[in-house]
Simulated assay, not measured.
Amino acid sequence: MNSAVSSRLKDRARTRKQVDNIYDNAVRAYIVHYSCESFYDNAGGGSKRVTSIAVRNLNSAQTKSWSIHKSAELLGFLDVISEHLDELEFHMLNGYFEFLRLHHDCTFVHWNMRDENYGFAALEHRFRVLAGEPFTLSDERKVDLARVLVNLYSRSYASHTSPSGKKGRIMSIMEVNKIADLDALQGNEEAEAFVHGEYLKLHRSTLRKVDVFANLFDRVHAKTLKTQAGFLDIYGVHPTALFQAAKDHWILSLIAVLSGLTSAVLNFSRLAAWFK
């Protein structure tokens, strides 16, 4: 078996075990997602303003969220949001980082929150810009669901455009699995909502996406997630990979067992006939 196949199988086995471990300890696992202004309309080169954050417990489905809209209502600025954006964003991020500090020993499942452009580090940087002191979550507590899907199903698990033409793998995998996209905005729609000051719309999109990611994670664990990857995309053609496929799918395992029994019966019949 070549090193590429061996590495792929090891990554797949490790990822499957990781998913099972998280699910077994779901009470201490959260789905996290956030929305922010557009990455592409950034002539000044500054960090992007965060508009909403949500975390959803994988066991209870209870969701905690922070947003510019919620902070505006709490602080009495609902009618003058645009005049207090820094103060409202600080209030929102402060709540999020306090939650993170209190749950630092939990696992946080996310979607591509990997760097200072979009990710945990981006949230930390943004809070520092607003003169806050962020809490830094240990990397071992972060699990990227997007990478989990790649490790288990290959990069072919979903196209970058859904069957109906919506942009992004999130929308694509949702559509393939018939998960409703009500309130879930595409990237360009989130940018447009920010420009128009539709902070409640952005908040609803963030809440919807943590629900979607929890749904996807449940299906990954149950091995019922539908993808656009073919059998060879996932397993390849090496015999060891095919054995792994049989372990993953009970129907293949049953066929293998029945084939073995059939072969044994035929061999026994031949042997019996030889002694007659």
Rank of each mutant, 00 (worst) to 15 (best):
S162C: 05
S162H: 00
P163M: 09
S164V: 12
K167V: 10
R169G: 14
I170D: 04
M171C: 06
M171E: 04
S172Y: 04
S172Q: 04
I173P: 02
I173Y: 01
I173M: 10
M174R: 04
M174I: 03
M174P: 03
N177F: 02
N177A: 09
N177K: 08
I179H: 09
I179G: 08
L182P: 01
L182W: 01
D183N: 15
A184F: 13
A184K: 06
Q186K: 06
Q186V: 09
Q186W: 06
G187V: 07
N188I: 12
E190N: 09
E190M: 12
E190S: 13
A191I: 08
E192C: 04
A193N: 10
F194E: 13
F194N: 08
V195N: 15
V195R: 15
H196M: 05
G197K: 11
E198P: 00
E198G: 01
Y199L: 13
Y199W: 12
K201L: 14
K201S: 07
K201E: 11
K201A: 06
L202C: 10
H203N: 04
H203Q: 12
H203V: 02
R204C: 10
R204D: 11
R204P: 02
S205F: 04
T206P: 00
L207S: 06
R208G: 08
K209A: 01
K209G: 02
K209S: 02
K209I: 06
D211P: 00
D211V: 00
D211F: 00
V212T: 12
V212S: 03
A214E: 06
N215C: 05
N215R: 05
N215W: 03
L216G: 00
L216K: 01
L216D: 02
L216Y: 00
